[in-house]
Design a protein around this nucleic acid. Structure first.
Ligand SMILES: Nc1ccn([C@H]2C[C@H](O)[C@@H](COP(=O)(O)OP(=O)(O)OP(=O)(O)O)O2)c(=O)n1
Ligand SMILES: [Mg+2]
Length: 980
DNA sequence: ATCCTCCCCTAC
DNA sequence: TAAGGTAGGGGAGGAT
């Protein structure tokens, strides 16, 4: 069956082969997927997580465990400390196990490792051990341990000799080896030689051999139709490997491959789906900001009747693009990239697969005239043109969409009691109170009022569905469209019969599974027993669908959920010709993830690499440069500490990639996700932290053996408290109790802390006593003084001051990437890549005097901030705009919104700035610098300078003070000052 | 019983 | 020409 389009939202009959988005992999092709998902056959589990501490025998025996463990570790440390002067802890984080006979001996290896921060495990715990040391492996062992880091003893010796952690891949035992790569690992001298060569070549040459490629290419080429992998490539500029006639070497195609240096930036600039995801996060952030501006309290506690609205623009992209690209009214129009006129014989009339330009361009949005022909969002243009030959295409106007969206949210967030941003063009509103207070209970009247305001502001039409819960409001919207309002109550819902596909959470797979059991409508669901439903679509989904089928839905709106993951995935244009290509791309992608984390002032301690691999037998994808039908693989690893350091994360990802052992020529998509994030709150209030530190030490003194010590349940732990614990203790908790992931996932205590009695719990962790229930209150009352990193331990520079010192003397490039564990990988990257990666993270000039407020030398057009503020005219008849109350809790918001806040601030007060606001802004910018968000810091400072450019002394002094503070931090960190 | 990893699915 | 991203809910099965 040929790969062909299937519309995302609603695939018509006979369409479905390859799914439009997301995990477009094999199992969906040609029919049956199981719904209750199961693990695939792929990569088993990651061995390297939580590499700390011995196994916990019993959950219950908390105090005994820690006492015992601490004693043992101290012993182990002491044992060798006696014999040797302190060594650089190059093996910190390494937990090793030794297998079989080795040369040097077990004892000697153990000494070398433990002296330098390694931990030894005398048995093989697959979850705790990070490295297995063995000279050779038995056949059976080799298979069993193929997913683990099995290294030769020479690795240890060479690491010690080099006094740093070397990449283990070169010393890998067993597994396939790239032809030409010596089976015997290179000695340290050779590695240095390679590195020097690498640097000289500046990325223009691809160096064969392990130092450049990092790892081998799998031997298995039986499926490959070419031998290009083994071709001795010398010039990187050499032809791309094009096994499937994709025209990868035509110059305009080559310029659009992921191997290009600026690919990610250009790709993201044009990707509608990337914009959609980015905007979703931004709008959630913006709603949080607006709600604060508007003094919206906590969500209404369902006192009486709930009134929920679902507001959604009609064919949003089309409506918005039409504003600047008018078309005859009533004519079918779509938004897509291809703008060429149709060529009648450009596509295969049977399959709709395009032969020429434009056909595999996806339709982001189609208007209602186009829909009457059967055109749908997500469809290939080629196929749509078959349905509707006169289809007109208009281009994307991304900036316009965002502007309209902000206008939209500004209006609805002011009106609604609670607002949940669903997407750039769609929001859920809880209006239970306001509809009574101001519209005498007429939801329709309120809806029409919102629609009128939004249209007047945006010139785009909005439809609104109304219901007693989210489900019914959503379903009502479908009936309201286009340009209308519709209300749906449970009775009306049960009277009508809906197709299961119309329910939330039912996509094409679930629909298919239900259909196979003869369930097509909500009535069919109601008729089915719950247990049968569970067998079809799983425990939870069955429960939800069962409720939905009766028109009930008890979900509540949430506007303040903390983000739990940051990621970047790219599945277009990914065509690699070598392992080096893949490695380079992963590094750049990691940089992208780190950038977005830094923008939000977040860090994480676990990373997952996702790769889509061309499925056996698949050739050229239906979509031009698309991923086609693939198998998905993913693998995760611990980062051992909270970080958003691109070098550290890139290194972990490269490691994962190598361990996945995938032919780089088959990689069609790569994704990186960082999880187990810090909870943000902990780093914003230093006063609070001191209090806790005190509590901690007091508790520690009290909780000696014999003292009462209870095991806290995961949900009782305040994640922000956990975050504050020293990293090694966090890691301990993670390994011992497997709960940090959960603690970190527990939404900040606010949700439950409304009723202190129920949620305030006294927990003790190894003598740590912390209260969780009152935290929010104190955070509220006490103005944040210090933001991220102030007084928080985890940053690597703090723990390795001497190493950093050394780095500072090196070139600036390296000073950005000081983390010890990764320095090696960092240095192995070609200079070109390093430079590229670093450029975005540091823009400094040599140290100068912390001179007087360096006035902005120029204000670039590109840095022009958005000026649409929240304090503009309030819609009439609504409560007056509350007073602007200054920039607080800055850490919570993304860069764009911060700038807006600064704009507001500098315009808010005629009498000059408040001292505490200056401190807050200064602290915020300092935290940006210390969090490596130098681009953000510089951008904020530039904007601040711009805002005060013709203001009087007090403002200039304020800006100067902020600038000094930022520069002081920058000098601390990098021995350099920001260039503004 | 519960956690963790590696998936799968959904939505815009 | 084309720009098929991503966060979050959830399940199966192995490890503990
Ligand atoms: N497969 C998709 C689905 C949506 N979008 C973008 C374009 C849409 O305009 C916007 C909003 O999605 P909607 O599902 O709300 O669809 P529309 O707004 O286009 O149509 P309507 O809401 O009237 O059904 O998201 C996209 O790019 N690709
Ligand atoms: Mg819409």
């Amino acid at each position: 069956m040929s790969e062909r389009y299937a519309a995302g939202p609603s695939a018509g009959p006979g369409e479905c082969t390859e799914y439009t988005l997301g995990p477009g992999d094999a199992s969906g092709v040609g029919g049956a997927r199981r719904l209750p998902s199961g693990p695939g056959t792929a990569a088993s589990h990651a061995p390297s997580d939580a590499p700390e501490g011995p196994v916990v025998p019993e959950f219950g025996d908390f105090r005994t465990y820690f006492g015992e463990r601490k004693r043992k570790l101290a012993e182990q440390a002491q044992e060798h400390a006696d014999q040797a002067p302190a060594q650089t802890p190059i093996f910190a984080g390494v937990v090793f196990h030794i297998n079989g006979y080795t040369q040097p001996s077990h004892y000697e290896l153990k000494r070398l490792l433990v002296e330098r921060g390694g931990r030894f495990l005398h048995y093989l715990s697959k979850t705790l051990v990070t490295h297995i040391i063995a000279s050779n492996l038995a056949r059976s062992k080799e298979k069993e341990l193929q997913n683990y880091r099995v290294v030769r003893p020479e690795w240890v010796v060479d690491c010690v000799r080099a006094n740093k952690l070397l990449p283990w891949h070169t010393y890998k035992v067993g597994g396939a080896h790239r032809p030409g790569v010596p089976a015997v690992p290179l000695g340290i001298g050779e590695l240095y030689a390679m590195r020097a060569m690498d640097d000289e070549c500046q990325g223009d040459l691809a160096i064969p051999g392990p130092a450049a490629s990092g790892t081998h290419v799998p031997l298995d080429t039986s499926s490959s139709t070419s031998v290009e992998v083994h071709r001795p490539h010398t010039l990187r500029a050499a032809a791309a490997v094009d096994r499937f006639g994709e025209g990868l070497n035509r110059s305009w195609v080559r310029r659009n491959l992921a191997t290009e240096k600026d690919f990610i930036t250009r790709y993201y600039a044009n990707s509608r789906l990337h914009h959609l995801s980015t905007w979703k996060a931004e709008m959630k952030d913006y709603v949080a900001l607006l709600r604060r501006e508007y003094h919206k309290g906590p969500p209404p506690i369902a006192a009486g009747r709930r009134v929920i609205m679902h507001a959604d623009f009609d064919c949003f992209f089309v409506s918005a693009s039409l504003l600047s690209h008018p078309q005859p009214s009533g004519s079918p129009v779509v938004v897509c990239h291809a703008q060429q006129q149709p060529q009648p014989d450009d596509y295969d009339p049977d399959t709709g697969v395009p032969r020429l330009a434009g056909g595999s361009s996806q339709i982001a949005s189609c208007n209602y005239a186009a829909r009457s022909f059967g055109v749908k969002n997500g469809m290939f243009l080629g196929q749509a043109r078959q349905l509707c030959p006169v289809l007109a295409t208009i281009p994307y106007c991304f900036e316009e969409y965002k502007r309209i969206s902000r206008d939209f949210y500004k209006i609805v967030a002011k009106i609604a009691d609670e607002t949940q941003a669903v997407s750039v063009d769609e929001a859920l509103l809880d209006v239970s109170d306001v509809v009574e207070r101001e519209f005498q209970g007429s939801a329709e009247a309120l809806a029409q009022d919102i629609r009128r305001r939004v249209f007047n502001e945006t010139r785009c039409t909005l439809s609104i569905g109304i219901g007693p819960n989210i489900l019914l409001a959503r379903l009502a919207t479908a009936k309201a469209k286009p340009d209308g309002v519709h209300a749906l109550d449970a009775d009306a819902f049960c009277g009508a019969d809906f197709r299961v596909r119309e329910l939330p959470n039912v996509g094409h797979v679930t629909e298919e599974c239900l259909a196979r059991s003869g369930i097509h409508t909500t009535g069919d669901i109601r008729a089915a027993t719950l247990s049968r439903l569970k067998g079809i679509c799983g425990e939870k989904t069955a429960m939800v669908l069962h409720n939905f089928s009766h028109g009930t839905d008890d979900r509540v709106l949430e506007s303040d959920k903390l983000r739990q993951a940051f990621g970047a995935d790219i599945g277009w244009g990914v065509r690699f010709s070598s392992q080096q290509d893949a490695d380079d791309f992963v590094v750049r992608l990691a940089g992208e993830v780190c950038r977005s984390m830094a923008d939000s002032q977040r860090m994480g301690s676990q990373v997952t690499l996702k790769v889509k691999k061309r499925q056996e037998g698949q050739g050229k994808p239906a979509k031009f440069l698309g991923h086609g039908i693939c198998d998905s693989l993913s693998k995760s690893t611990s980062l051992h500490q909270m970080t958003n350091d691109p070098a550290r994360i890139a290194a972990a990802c490269i490691d994962l990639l190598h361990r996945m052992d995938i032919d780089p020529l088959d990689i069609r998509a790569v994704g990186i996700q960082v999880q187990r994030l810090n909870s943000l709150e902990n780093s914003t209030d230093i006063g609070d932290m001191f209090t806790k530190a005190k509590e901690r030490s007091e508790g520690g003194a009290g909780a000696r053996p014999g003292a009462q010590c209870e095991l806290p349940s995961a949900s009782q732990l305040d994640p922000s408290v956990v975050d504050e614990l020293p990293e090694d203790i966090q890691e301990e908790l993670r390994t011992a109790y497997k709960l940090v992931g959960h603690a970190a996932n527990v939404p900040a205590p606010r949700a439950s802390s409304e009723s202190p009695a129920s949620s305030t719990s006294e927990v003790s962790i190894r003598g740590t006593s912390a209260r969780s229930g009152q935290r929010k209150d104190s955070t509220r009352r006490v103005r944040p003084r210090k933001l991220a990193f102030q007084g928080s331990k985890p940053r690597p520079e703090c723990t390795k001051p001497d190493l950093l010192q050394a780095f500072r003397k090196v070139e600036t490039l390296d000073a950005v990437m000081p983390s010890q564990v990764d320095e090696d990988v960092w240095r192995h990257l070609p200079t070109g890549i390093r430079r590229e990666l670093a450029r975005d993270y540091i823009k400094t000039k040599p140290p100068r005097h912390p001179g007087l407020g360096q006035a902005p030398t120029g204000f670039t057009a590109g840095a022009q901030p958005e000026m649409d503020g929240v304090s503009e005219q309030a819609p009439a008849q609504l409560p007056a705009q509350p007073e602007y109350d200054g920039p607080t809790q800055l850490g919570k918001y993304q860069l764009a919104n911060i700038k807006q806040l600064i704009g507001e601030w500098t315009r808010s007060s005629e009498d000059g700035p408040l001292a505490e606001d200056i401190v807050d802004i200064g602290d915020y910018v300092e935290s940006l610098v210390r969090g490596r968000s130098l681009v953000s810091a510089s951008s904020v400072l530039t904007y601040l300078m711009f805002c005060v450019r013709d203001k009087r002394g007090a403002w200039a002094a304020a800006a100067d003070s902020v600038m000094r503070q930022a520069n002081q931090a920058c000098v601390d960190m990098y021995d350099a000052q920001l260039q503004i």
